[in-house]
Design a protein around this nucleic acid. Structure first.
Lengths: 210, 210
DNA sequence: AATGTTCTGTAACCATTGTTACTGCATAAG
DNA sequence: CTTATGCAGTAACAATGGTTACAGAACATT
């Protein structure tokens, strides 16, 4: 854990803080697809992402889903953080997008570090800033873009997150993330393929030029 | 300014901090409709709302608007805060919904207080938490609700914010806030009137039972 | 190889929302 | 009082996205 943490966070935190993280944090590894936090869970800690990617989803009362954003190495979930401090239940679901490694920090330490380490404060504020930006981005997409443009953005984002132009996914899974129906996604994907922007196989979409 | 500030924030901040705020903050009063922060502005300070209400808007590249949420007494704009710390331009527009009074805090002090006052840190974190919640709410509304339900929510929110069941507004203004067209709003309002939920006059909507 | 399952493609249709166009009414300005 | 302006009501139509239904392809299981 030492080396990995240092590599991902060494330039952010001083040695003393890194040592403390090492001491109280627990290293977790999850496989792609595993649910890390479920809606309504009490949040017991805050994850520092070391490797992989996590997707953050919102769900409404009918069980309809919507992808909010992805977290990458160096990110933390400000939403979780927010829940921790407010001692409230999670408003979101976190699912591993790829195999993922992260360090879990118990809540208790967070408040302490906030007063003791300037670098920690800055990190937390930066996390909030980043999350608010992502949320604005998401709102822009839902409010101002049509489904075809949202789909293109989604494919671009996933290709980027996975560092792979070949996205392994069924149309149904994409439909869940974008909160629409499978038929709509199939229709739009076919259109993108005809325009030469992607190519389609079963369970796979290859991004050519989006 | 002393008494007003104390009334709105006295239970949050210790005397010492209140005194500092008094010292470096400047009291501002704006009329309903005035633009307080414009998109692209460099943010020079952070507002502590004492009286009135502010609406926060997002705009896309074509100039299309969308209402994000309202701020009330005791609130601050976490978005502004976020911009301050990142030294970035404002991503949103803030417009006075009613005649509004607030205290403007210069950026420089904020960092200092964050390390010195626990109550200030808690306030800032609570502000972030509140804003993230509002953003989630907004996303829920856009993603999961139809326009008629969004309109009802909007009318409820405005009635609550203004503490008045009679909303002074044209259909066009509502259309801007919800990012739709005037015709759509007129159509849905008429439907709500027929259902007995509101009554309509020129420039005015009276909420009866939403 | 035969069968069952999952995924994709497509057509036809519906619902919601957006657009255009025109009307009359209320209010303000002259 | 007359005219100009802004606001609201409404009809007709277009566009987008959601729904249902079905067929065939790809893959897995036996």
């Amino acid at each position: 854990m030492h080396e990995e943490l240092k590599e991902a966070y060494g330039f952010l935190f001083e040695k003393e803080l890194l040592d403390e993280i090492m001491e109280v944090g627990t290293l977790k590894k999850v496989k792609a697809g595993e649910v890390i936090i479920e809606i309504g869970d009490y949040v017991t800690g805050m994850p520092l992402l070391i490797n992989g990617a996590i997707k953050i989803l919102r769900e409404d009362k009918d069980g309809d889903e919507l992808l909010l954003y992805f977290l990458e190495r160096g990110d933390t979930c400000a939403m979780t953080l927010s829940c921790c401090l407010g001692r409230t239940k999670s408003e979101i679901r976190a699912v591993a997008e790829t195999d993922t490694t992260f360090v879990m920090i118990p809540i208790a330490k967070m408040e302490e570090w906030t007063s003791r380490y300037k670098s920690w404060r800055n990190f937390v504020f930066a996390a909030y800033h980043a999350r608010l930006s992502e949320m604005l981005d998401t709102i822009d997409a839902i409010a101002f873009l049509n489904m075809d443009q949202r789909l293109m953005k989604y494919l671009r984002d996933r290709a980027k997150i996975n560092r792979d132009d070949e996205i392994q996914s069924t149309h149904q899974q994409i439909a869940y993330d974008l909160h629409t129906s499978r038929v709509v996604i199939s229709r739009l994907l076919k259109k993108l393929e005809i325009e030469g922007k992607i190519s389609l196989q079963r369970n796979q979409i290859k991004v050519i030029d989006l």
